[in-house]
Amino acid sequence: MAGVWIIAEHRDGDFRKVTFEAASAAKTVADELGAEVVAVVLGKGLKDKCGELGKYGVAKVLYAENDAFEYYTADAYAEAVAALAKEQAPAAIIFGASMQGKDLAGRLAAKLDVGAAVDCTGLAVEGGRLKATRPIYAGKVYADVLLKADPQVVTLRPNVFDVKEAGGDAAVEEVSPAVSEPRVKLEEVVKEAEGKVELTEATIIVSGGRGMKEPDNFKILEELAGVLKAAVGASRSAVDAGWRPHGDQVGQTGKVVTPNCYIACGISGAIQHLAGMGSSKVIVAINKDPDAPIHSKADFSVVADLFDIVPNLTEECKKAG
């Protein structure tokens, strides 16, 4: 049986969490298909790290060491993975729908002349093939997607699939796929403030809208987020007012997020906002208007002034921590 592959994602010498999520999800479908999970690791100086992937169900690692893989470029990654896949014919290639994964999926699928199901929130096996479930229209509806050609390229939305430990060390095999001269150069990396949690990977998000009234008031959300190790998001109104950066916008034309807990403060719950956060596991609304649409989507509603509630909530959460 052809293997189920994952592509490992790493930064600064460590695998990222989406890699373990992909390995765990791949292991579940591979077991059903009677196949093995094989991880492709493209990197520099990562050989000793590879064995660690065994813990998440990876049986074998194909490790390729090359200067071209020190940091990710779509060109080098797609070329290398496609070359390996053509040689070894895996049934599926699964990886995280992180920024890297989102970039790679199309290039890889186009190179292999196959389809791709991206940013999936569900993965099942049906009649020996994968069935991927993915939100479309930012989660207004969900599509079940079948991939008609092998390898079946699937990316998984971060923070949706559980990391499951299974097994021990993985066998590491060195490979050396050819790569062309790089066309894209990484000139510089500008890091964001230390400790800032990325929205699409956050387990908790505290989000503010026009009800925050002015940019300085976001401080109280930052404080709550600090205690909860959460990311801070915003509605488009808050972003368009210039209160928060564009990257913080949640919604159909912003980031689509799936945290365990989404706390909406002073957000009315417009359809475009609900689309982007509606599949969060638990939704909390803090809004003084009892008729605000966000309340009808919330698991827990607090109908009150956010400026009274949020600081008290922060204090309460501190106590427990």
């Binding site: 079940d144 079948l146 050609a149 309340h295």
Partner: peptide, 21 residues
């Protein structure tokens, strides 16, 4: 020449009714 097939489109999973604190 599509390489994907949409087998089904479904409404989002139902959420349990919310609670007012």
């Amino acid at each position: 020449d599509d390489k994907i097939e949409i087998a089904a489109i479904n409404p989002p999973p139902e959420r349990a009714p919310g609670k007012v604190i």
